[in-house]
């Protein structure tokens, strides 16, 4: 299938250069369209069939983040993949955008080979929206069970040095795992709120994260499969303690991972999911 690509950037030179790089990547590309800002892009999306949006973030009138939000709120545009092209390195802003439905990002400048690699990943991994659903399930668990408020990440958020990891494996129509990573401080708050404990120790903090992971998984799974489909076998969570920030850095490195801010503390969740049918074929 030849893809129609919409390039959104306030610099005509950059749009031209991006187009040139894409042409050099030797992929099956249909028509190129371009827009100077998010507002113009949304108008084009109303009238033209577009298979992929490549967008800058900082643009006058309407930037890339607002454009993505509006695309996701409209039935006709919500499933069109968006790849952000930015001079920013991996920042909390990009992490948030990935959690909100941006499929990937390319750092300026990028080569034809890097573009090709990104497209191949995009084509090989159709959007499932499960990451957003998992985010919703986690927010719901946190707000109802742990009585804390989850807000988007910001620069003031504390990234913990001592982290705890909980993992839930599930199988059935879909097979995969949900992992959650949080600092010991946040786990202490969770333990206090969930179990109303007077004394918080390390074990109580670990148990609270496991409990939260279980509830989140229970809320998430019905969202991604038919309620009549299968019974899911959820294994007993295993817990690993991690003692430094590099683990955290790894955890925020892909589109299926998102980070929430709980009263200044970071909590991250990562989803890996595959179709059981596909697994059977592979086996």
């Amino acid at each position: 299938m030849a893809w129609n690509i919409l390039i959104v950037d306030d610099s005509s030179l950059t749009r031209k250069r991006i187009r040139r790089i894409i042409e050099m990547a030797d992929l099956d590309i249909g028509e190129f369209l371009d827009a100077e800002n998010g507002e113009e892009a949304l108008k084009i999306l109303e009238d033209s069939p577009v298979d992929l949006v490549l967008s800058d973030l900082n643009m006058p009138k309407m930037g890339g983040a607002e454009m993505v939000q509006r695309m996701k709120s409209r039935e006709a545009t919500k499933s069109i993949p968006v790849v952000v092209i930015s001079t920013e390195s991996k920042t909390s802003r990009l992490t948030k955008l990935l959690a909100e439905g941006v499929r990937d990002y390319l750092h300026k400048p990028f080569t034809p080979e890097e573009f090709k690699e990104t497209m191949q990943t995009l084509w090989a991994k159709p959007e499932t929206n499960t990451s957003n659903l998992l985010a919703q399930a986690l927010v719901q668990s946190l707000e109802t069970m742990a009585l804390v408020t989850a807000v988007p990440v910001d620069d003031d958020m504390v990234v913990p040095e001592e982290t705890v990891l909980a993992q839930i494996d599930f199988s059935g129509a879909k097979k995969g795992a949900i992992q959650m990573l949080a600092g010991m401080d946040l786990c202490g708050i969770l333990a206090e709120n969930i179990a109303a404990l007077d004394t918080i120790n390390d074990q109580a903090a670990l148990d609270a994260l496991k409990e939260l992971s279980n509830v989140t998984c229970g809320l998430f799974l019905p969202l991604v499969v038919s309620s009549t489909a299968d019974v899911f076998d959820i294994t007993v969570p295993k817990v690993a303690t991690c003692d430094n920030a590099p683990q955290w850095t790894e955890f925020v490195a892909d589109g299926n991972t998102f980070v929430l801010n709980i009263e200044g503390h970071a909590i991250a969740a990562r989803l890996t999911v595959e179709d059981a049918a596909m697994t059977t074929e592979t086996n």
């Binding site: 950037d9 610099s11 030179l13 250069r17 991006i18 800058d56 400048p109």
Partner: peptide
């Protein structure tokens, strides 16, 4: 920012 972006894309 825009000069930076264009320069970056030009290599």
């Amino acid at each position: 920012h825009k000069i930076k972006g264009e320069s970056s894309m030009m290599g």
